[in-house]
Design a protein around this nucleic acid. Structure first.
Lengths: 162, 162
DNA sequence: CTTGACATTCCAACAGTGGGAAGGTTTAGC
DNA sequence: GCTAAACCTTCCCACTGTTGGAATGTCAAG
């Protein structure tokens, strides 16, 4: 089976299959004399596993661990469950973060007339009008009780969630 | 004011300030004779605006539009509101996507013993045991009613959501 | 033999952000 | 006046995944 067939059969694009091979998530495929990669049904099975795991939002690193466990007959289901739990925790953190944004935005949007006039509570909020205290160094010293800091850090980390 | 002070005053890292300048989100800063960037209070104000917008999850592109509107005295609040609404819609889509994952994962985790034994419903799901039909081209033809397709596309796009 | 559908590799881009190197400046202390 | 620390500058790389394209090679059908 060529990469195109494996792609169709697994739902993973050929580009991604090559990428997964390159980063070591899957073993290098065998090659035909012409250099074409060859795939077996077992390979497709693995690719489908990966595809499904990606659909569930697991990171590549987590999928690597899941695949190892999957291949290991002596695995403990506890180890699998731990990875899932870790991932769920990350998802929930992310969801909360997004929900916080939605709540703030919907509140602002509700108060915005949304007409031809320029006055707009959304811009006023971004501008910092409604901020707790108007001191000069507000942005750093600000009351934002660690929420700001975590939002920052969380952003990079959360973006890395996937 | 040097970039370091502007960074502290705005809560935007110096790295990011330079980056925002490079991609054109903010105008190139004036330079001192030594080549150092100089910032005014107005610049810091803009940076704080951007910072707050990032905290609310707006993309750089959206922030660019928001800043333009902010600067435009003849703006319509409707335009601002539309950007916010667009963003909220994206956030909600993302939240739903993540919640769907959480629901599936929690269901699987609930059914997983999580002990020393290898049997694991989580791996079985990933493997495709519970899949609707075992035909060869399941993954592509699959009933996954556009949810998979959107998840795929949505992933790149959603990753790009913020 | 040509054409089209494959395959290959390599390079770039996306969104943001952090890290660091290699170099120039300024400032404070001595 | 010298030195060290704390700045600043530019440039390149990394991350996460995924897609796109270019340049080139191969195979099958007409």
């Amino acid at each position: 089976m060529n990469i195109g067939q494996a792609s169709k059969a697994s739902g993973v694009s050929a580009k991604m299959i090559r990428y997964y091979e390159r980063i070591g998530l899957i073993a290098p495929a065998a090659r035909e004399t012409n250099g074409y990669r060859v795939y077996t049904d077992a390979d497709v099975h693995t690719l489908r596993f990966i595809r499904r795991a990606r659909d569930l939002g697991f990171s590549i690193a987590q999928i690597g661990r899941l695949v190892s466990l999957w291949r290991d007959p002596k695995r403990s289901s506890a180890d699998v469950k731990a990875i899932a739990a870790e991932h769920v925790a990350g998802l929930k953190r992310k969801i909360l973060e997004l929900q916080t944004m939605v709540a703030a935005l919907e509140d602002l949007a509700r108060r915005c007339h949304g007409d031809h006039r320029p006055e707009c509570p959304i811009l006023e909020d971004l501008e910092g009008i409604g901020a707790p205290a108007p001191e000069r160094e507000r942005a750093t010293e600000r009351a934002r009780p660690a929420a700001a800091g975590r939002a920052r850090t969380g952003r990079a980390a959360a973006g890395g969630l996937r």
